[in-house]
């Protein structure tokens, strides 16, 4: 049963990837580049705006993760794949930039603010949680996705379908992490089993020494994507809004990206991008609403 479902998922993913691949060549151009009005694109943007500059240059530098399965992961061919990557392609497409003209730069978590401040990248789409501390240094469009703490268990486990089923169960997490704190504070009946890293939780999970692993669903989805015997269950029970990082004072660009996001939320391109990538492992959520905060 599982095998056939998996096959179906793989097929959908492959089709979607193939489609988006063709799109770049401008053949039928479904999601990204809006074919016809390529010429008029430049004129749409106000003089001197970042959008006009990028559209004029015909290229954009995007910071993303290179090692985050389903969001930004570089394959053997050197091209990153994942949900973040698809979102960046959609934004670039709205600027009239072909996906082959996007320059991808790896931005690990600790380098993201610096990369934006130095102008090394135009935008950062890299599982980037919006918070007030970071807003001191960079601007955030979005959120375009609400990540959050979730549960990973064995595919064969039928007891645990969501956070409410954790009572009395042994749940593995990382010692001293925020997810551990959440479990201790909000699920007093859970037997918390702390390890040093999340990957160390997997062996005890497979051996039945723990019943589940809990942390951000994005991390869990990465594990589930790599092994058929693991599944992410239930909706996230905390909220980590992922935003698109831009230069702090470039409010015009930030608001324009918000417009683009609202457009792709509404016309289904967002959902299609999700289902082709992270949606192969995680449930498909409703699009979030963007936060047009004032400085």
């Amino acid at each position: 049963m599982t095998t056939s479902r998996r096959l179906a998922v793989a097929l959908i993913a492959a089709t979607a990837l193939a489609l988006s691949g063709c799109g770049g060549d401008g053949e039928d151009t479904p999601p990204a580049t809006d074919g016809g009005d390529d010429g008029g694109e430049t004129a749409e943007f106000p003089e001197g705006s970042t959008m006009a500059r990028l559209a004029e240059a015909g290229t954009i530098t995007v910071g993303t993760k290179f090692d985050q399965p389903l969001f930004g992961l570089v394959g053997p061919d050197g091209v990153p794949e994942g949900f973040d990557v698809e979102i960046a392609k959609l934004i670039a497409g709205e600027l009239g930039i072909d996906e082959d003209d996007i320059e991808w730069v790896e931005t690990p978590s600790q380098n993201r603010e610096t990369a934006i401040e130095n102008g090394d990248v135009d935008i950062v789409v890299a599982t980037y949680t919006i918070n007030d501390e970071r807003k001191q240094r960079v601007g955030f469009a979005g959120p375009y996705y609400l990540a959050g703490q979730s549960i990973l268990t064995l595919a064969s486990n039928t007891d645990i379908q969501g956070p409410d089923d954790l009572s009395g169960k042994r749940v593995c997490t990382v010692s001293g992490s925020t997810p551990e704190g959440n479990l201790l504070a909000n699920f007093p009946d859970v037997d918390v089993v702390p390890f040093g890293t999340y990957s160390e939780c997997l062996e005890p999970l497979r051996n039945g020494q723990v019943d589940a692993v809990s942390t951000d669903n994005v991390i869990l989805a990465g594990f589930a994507a790599e092994s058929d015997d693991l599944e992410v269950r239930g909706d996230p029970f905390t909220e980590e809004p992922y935003g698109i990082g831009v230069a702090k004072d470039d409010v015009e660009f930030r608001m324009w990206i918000n417009d683009v996001l609202e457009e792709i939320f509404a016309d289904g391109r967002w959902t299609a991008a999700w289902e082709a990538t992270a949606g192969t492992v995680l449930p498909t959520p409703e699009p979030p609403s963007v936060d047009r905060y004032e400085d």
Partner: peptide, 18 residues
């Protein structure tokens, strides 16, 4: 502390996060 035992360091990490 890194292997499923909550002793002084484990407690310290929790308190530090909290």
């Amino acid at each position: 502390a890194g292997f499923a035992t909550v002793e002084l360091i484990g407690v310290g990490r929790r308190l530090s996060t909290a």
